[in-house]
Design a protein around this nucleic acid. Sequence first.
RNA 1: CAGCCAGGCCGUUCUAUCGCUAUUUAUUCCGGUGUUUGCCGGCAUGAAUAGAGGAAAGUCGGGACAACGCAGAGCGCCAUACUUCCUAACAGGAAGGUUCCGCAUGAUGCGGAAACAGCAAGUGCCGCAGAAAAUAACCGCCUAUGUCGUAGCUUUUGUUGAGGCAAGCCAGCCUUCGCUAAAGCUACGGCAGGCAAGGGUGAAAACGCAGGGUAAGAGCCUACGUCUUGCUGUGGUGACACAGCAAGGGGGUAAACCUUAUGGGUUGCAAGACCAAAUAUCCCGGCGAUUAAGGGCUGCUCGUCCGAUGCCGGUGGGUAGGUUGCUGGAAUUGCACAGUGAUGUGCAAUCCAGAUAAAUGAUAGAAGCCUGAUAAUUAUCAGGAACAGAAUCCCGCUUACAGGCCUGGCUGACUC
RNA 2: GGUCCAGUAGCUCAGUUGGAUAGAGCAACAGCCUUCUAAGCUGUCGGUCCCAGGUUCGAGUCCUGGCUGGAUCA
Length: 130
Amino acid sequence: MRQTFKKGERLHSKKFIENLFSEGQSFYLYPFKIFYLNSESRQNYPAQILISVSKRSFRKATERNKVKRLVRETYRMNKEKLYNRREESKGQLLIGLIYTAKTIMTYAEIERKIILILQRLIEQDEQAAG
RNA sequence: CAGCCAGGCCGUUCUAUCGCUAUUUAUUCCGGUGUUUGCCGGCAUGAAUAGAGGAAAGUCGGGACAACGCAGAGCGCCAUACUUCCUAACAGGAAGGUUCCGCAUGAUGCGGAAACAGCAAGUGCCGCAGAAAAUAACCGCCUAUGUCGUAGCUUUUGUUGAGGCAAGCCAGCCUUCGCUAAAGCUACGGCAGGCAAGGGUGAAAACGCAGGGUAAGAGCCUACGUCUUGCUGUGGUGACACAGCAAGGGGGUAAACCUUAUGGGUUGCAAGACCAAAUAUCCCGGCGAUUAAGGGCUGCUCGUCCGAUGCCGGUGGGUAGGUUGCUGGAAUUGCACAGUGAUGUGCAAUCCAGAUAAAUGAUAGAAGCCUGAUAAUUAUCAGGAACAGAAUCCCGCUUACAGGCCUGGCUGACUC
RNA sequence: GGUCCAGUAGCUCAGUUGGAUAGAGCAACAGCCUUCUAAGCUGUCGGUCCCAGGUUCGAGUCCUGGCUGGAUCA
């Protein structure tokens, strides 16, 4: 599977974002707070993701960009298992990742955390299905 | 060669793998349309090309562009403030003037700073201290002038109060005498008045200093100095400089109100235009219904336009997708010419980000750079790489910044 | 992205037209009262007036630049 990250894989609809934060479930896995919601309307990709870094944590735009790029890159490299799991289901999974740490973590650290998060999302999905 | 100051410039590069955005192009599939090989739109995949800054930042000036009706007048408000020039414009820049500061010096030179129009148009303010903080007068100085009082002196008038001369009486005469009145002079004091030299304060004290002058004094007068305004001459486009003449008399504060001159209509790409979607002319309160309420993005007034299925406020509901504006421009690079310079002109070449929960990246390695250590002029090891991310565009300013390069000046050391 | 506003004691706020020890309430601390606590009374402490520069004799106040926080516009 290709490790792409197109625009269709990014969550950008204002309506869906409001639904995600008002109706979605959430859990916390340092340094991220994760929101997720199984939407019924299926589009081209099995999941859409939103990455948020607060202006309170990082005042400078360069630092926020740096963190978002690292998170996006690790998600792109490791999303394959989640996609495989969601392949059969009709709905679309909306994911919101909020970075809450005050310092910039390294690529390896973020990658480890993202893998854990994706595993947990898969488990949650299996529970919902079963 | 090193250090300091000023100005200008640059502000990492390459390879591999995996990605993102835009444009062009090819193919498959889907949708719409059409009588076929067509046209339009979308998803995916492949290829090519391009893809953050000197400040992209702060949003402090100024414009382009757009809307406000095709915006008109007055007041208000705001901004600017030595001169000339540059620029589309500016609170920007260049060159110069003036004042102040620093360094060196025999004149003078070099460098830096300046919200640099007007308190000498009016008004206001200047705590405490101090006599006084602005048409002065508390202490003090003066008594020229006016007036009153006291004392003394002189002159004159009157008086027999005292004394004397003379004498029989009436009268008379005399005085370093007294008294009375007037005038004058002198001294002292009071009042009116004159003066601002001196007075320990204060951030600041009513031009400085010398002589004259006066009752005492004072720019009151004069010379010199300093300053302001006006005029003339010379030089300069001009600010201004130099010289002369005349008048003047001066506390500070305009980043106090203000005056003078000049400029500014207001709001901003979330401006604005178009397409699609969505519904509720629900309900409550207020105003008005033709002499009109109210509104039209301007602080007020006037003017002007719209205005009856009307307007304003509240509550509640729906939609919040896309296209355009949007990047070819006061553009970039090179050369030549003009100008002290900012800058301008001409020619040639080039097209150089357009994202939208917001792309321009991640990982690994190498090169070069900086710092430290070890051996000694080159290697090895370890660490580091600043400030910072386009959002309509442009010109400036300001602020942040590792390291490096160039030019000029000054200082020091060494060599010749 | 545009526009606008604010910053004073630990907290919430005053502070006039520049003028000298920057005030008030709550809080904190100490004492009185009470068997003790609360309440009450008395007193004390506590300030880089967001930062830097300028104007002025003098700046919380005026001007310029910066920092931080907030509001608002489809």
